[in-house]
Design a protein around this nucleic acid. Structure first.
Lengths: 199, 199
DNA sequence: GTTTCTCACATACACCGTGTATGTCGTTAG
DNA sequence: CTAACGACATACACGGTGTATGTGAGAAAC
């Protein structure tokens, strides 16, 4: 019963190829060939190209939210928890495939609407939680919460993209620069304008 | 000599269809049909689908940067000029097609790299100018300027997307909410943390 | 133990969309 | 009058998705 292994191999190859060549630039024939099966096998396990991509995406996002949940669980203060989540996210984005798949290929491949639907389950939902808890703790100046969530989410996406296109040698530095700019912008959202350095 | 009229008609229809159905969802046959010509005419005036889209994009962006240049020319203070540019941009984004074409379909249609190349000429370049003048005037806390430009650019994109997906009846309110959140985030980038209300 | 059923794939094909090569018609220049 | 060129239309080749059908191995039924 090698079915699971086949499925995993297809998913693995698809992850790599979608990240390397993009969604449109990757034919299912290429995926099948690299996984050493035929297109028939791919269609047996996934209902189509888009479904395969969504599976790839889900795997990427699940890995992220588990990591973030683990690293923010012990932090009591919502603001500190959000910053911890940010750092965790930025670390994940240093993986070249993550940012490309989720932030770049995602909207392009699934279409704007469908992508956002998927994201609701993962990154977007996570940001929503953090922002709500920040507001609950009185950290945010009053403005429409959904709009705030949206801009925070896009801020993370901007970092993901930036890191995805940054060469391996500059990645560490870029990660820290992204962190600094995002932190500064987030401070702008606070009702109080005092900045506690970092951490 | 109806060549110019034909070209304009194709460009016009393409703008509408790309905005309504997306890049991938629009076949050149549909464009040709709506413009009451054949695909041959489309290929006569544009070298291909991507080139047609780039022409559509360029027209959208040119309209924007002219408007922004006009409305910010008389503002002396760089910070106020940037805010004036922001307002002008947000107004433009209330046109349902602009945000969708530039921020949503753009990267998807042209691919990440090519889109950014195109944007350098238009919106991205404009943001770059504003940020440089802000830094020149000492408004920005020291951090990597390119990263700052990038995040500001993406902040605008986030607003463009948000407004593109907002219904006509909520657009005015959403516009103002976007303005408020962006202004707050921008204040976070200032060296001084004092917020002069708005304006 | 042979038949049958189903799972996991492979093969073959129909359809759609792009791009390109070629054909046609009207206008203009010499 | 014809030769050339611009502005299209027509026809076709190619690549890619999705779907329908074929096949072989193993489990289940009897």
């Amino acid at each position: 019963m090698y079915a699971d292994a086949t499925r995993a191999a297809v998913l693995d190859v698809a992850t790599r190829l979608f990240a390397e060549r993009g969604y449109a630039g990757t034919a299912l024939a290429d995926v099948a060939a690299d996984a050493q099966v035929t297109r028939g096998a791919v269609y047996h396990h996934f209902s189509g190209k888009q479904a395969l991509f969504e599976a790839v995406l889900a795997a990427q996002e699940l890995e992220l939210i588990e990591r973030i949940a683990a690293e923010t669980a012990e932090v009591a203060d919502p603001w500190e928890a959000a910053l911890a989540g940010l750092e965790s996210f930025l670390d994940r984005c240093c993986d070249p495939t993550y940012g490309r798949l989720v932030w770049q290929e995602g909207p392009s491949a699934l279409g704007w609407t469908r992508w956002k639907e998927c994201e609701k389950e993962y990154a977007y939902g996570l940001v929503e939680q953090f922002v709500h808890s920040l507001r609950g703790a009185g950290y945010l100046r009053p403005s429409d919460i959904n709009t705030t969530v949206w801009f925070c989410f896009q801020l993370l996406g901007a970092a993901g993209l930036r890191l995805a296109e940054t060469g391996e040698e500059d990645k560490r530095r870029m990660r820290d620069e992204c962190s600094a700019v995002i932190r500064a912008m987030l401070l702008g959202l606070r009702g109080d304008a005092t900045a506690p350095g970092g951490g």
